[in-house]
Design a protein around this nucleic acid. Structure first.
Length: 284
DNA sequence: CTACGAACCTGCCTGC
DNA sequence: TGCAGGCAGGTTCGTA
C-alpha cells in the first residue's frame, strides 16, 4: 500500500495532531492495548510496557520517516512501524472502553490520558518493533538513498552502484538497498514519464537518462505528497480521508486503457512478481 | 551476484 | 447464489 509519499503523509499528520496543540504536560506514552498478539511479527508488548513504566524516557520527542518506516522517537528508544500493504494509524480521543473496535484493529497506544493511536491492518504485513536509538544506524544499514534528499554526488554514487547490474531498471529503483521509498506505483509512473522500458537493463541506459529518471522520481514523489498520496484500496490518512494522487496515475492500474500520450493500449506484464504497467509504444 | 517463485495474510472482484 | 481464481501501495526466504 504505502510507498514513500503515503508514509510521509502519515508521519506529518501524526506529528501535527500530536505536537501542534499545546499540552500542559510532556507527551508521554502511558498505555498500550492489543487486540491481537502478532502482525507480521509478534507485537513487542512487554518491551513497550517497559518503556511506558519509565518515569523519564517515555516522552515522545519526534515522529520521523526513513524509507517506508515510521519512527516514533523517545529519548533512548525508537518505536518502528512499517505499514506493510494495508496498515494505517488513526486517532481516538477518549476512554478506550468506549472505543468501537473495528475489524483488524490490532494495537493502540495511549499518549497523555486519552489520546489513542490505533493501528489497523487487514493483511497484517505491517509490524512494529522497539529498538535502542543507538541501534538505528545498524537497523537501516542495508537501506539506500532517500530520493528526496539525494545530492548530485549521491546520484553519481548510485549510478556507479547500479550501472553494472544485470537487473531490469524497475527492479533496481524498487530495490530498497539502492533507493528507498519507491514501490510499484511510483516506479511504473516514473518510468512511463521518462519513457523508459521497465525491463531495460542499466547497461542500455545512458547516465544522463538515469539522472533524469531520478529527477522524475523526486518530482513524482513530491507531487504525490502534495496530492495526499495514492488511495487505491486501503490507504487512508490519519483522519481516514483519501489521497488524490491516484487520479493522476498515467499507467498504474490502467491495463488495456489508452495511453494518455499515444492512445495505444497500456500493457500489464509481471516483472519480479509485480504487475508492471507501461506503454510499449512510448517506453523503450 | 541474480532471478524467480513462494510465503506471509485478508478482502474484493470477476467469471463460470 | 456459490465457488474458484486472480489480484492488491511490501518484504523476506529458499532454490536454481
Amino acid at each position: 500500500m504505502p510507498e514513500l509519499p503515503e508514509v510521509e503523509i502519515v508521519c506529518r499528520h501524526l506529528s501535527e495532531k500530536l505536537f501542534s496543540q499545546k499540552h500542559n504536560e510532556p507527551l508521554k506514552l502511558t498505555q498500550i492495548k492489543t487486540w491481537r498478539k502478532n502482525l507480521r511479527y509478534e507485537i513487542p508488548k512487554r518491551e513497550i510496557q517497559r518503556l511506558i513504566r519509565l518515569t523519564e524516557g517515555n516522552e515522545l520527542l519526534e515522529i520521523k520517516r526513513r524509507a517506508k518506516f515510521i519512527q516514533f522517537e523517545f529519548k533512548n528508544t525508537v518505536l518502528i512501524s512499517h505499514l506493510g500493504m494495508t496498515g494505517r494509524w488513526s486517532f481516538y480521543r477518549g476512554d478506550i472502553k468506549n472505543y468501537d473496535v473495528q475489524k483488524h484493529d490490532h494495537l493502540a497506544l495511549c499518549f497523555l490520558s486519552n489520546v489513542w493511536l490505533i493501528y489497523n491492518d487487514p493483511r497484517r504485513f505491517g509490524f512494529v518493533e522497539l529498538i535502542n536509538k543507538q541501534d538505528l544506524p545498524d537497523y537501516f544499514e542495508n537501506y539506500g538513498f532517500e530520493p528526496l534528499s539525494m545530492r548530485h554526488h549521491d546520484e553519481v554514487s548510485l549510478w556507479e552502484m547500479i550501472s553494472h547490474l544485470n537487473s531490469p531498471i524497475k527492479s533496481i529503483i524498487m530495490n530498497q538497498k539502492y533507493l528507498v521509498g519507491v514501490g510499484n506505483i511510483y516506479a511504473c509512473e516514473a518510468l512511463f514519464k521518462e519513457k523508459i522500458d521497465p525491463f531495460k537493463l542499466p547497461k542500455k541506459i545512458k547516465k544522463e537518462t538515469f539522472f533524469k529518471l531520478l529527477s522524475q522520481i523526486k518530482k513524482i514523489l513530491s507531487d504525490a505528497i502534495l496530492a495526499g498520496g495514492s488511495s487505491i484500496k486501503n490507504y487512508r490518512h490519519v483522519d481516514l480521508s483519501e489521497g488524490n494522487f491516484q487520479k493522476m496515475h498515467l499507467v498504474y492500474g490502467r491495463e488495456n486503457q489508452p495511453c494518455r500520450i499515444c492512445k495505444n493500449q497500456v500493457r500489464r506484464k509481471i516483472l519480479a512478481g509485480r504487475s508492471t504497467f507501461y506503454c510499449s509504444a512510448c517506453q523503450d
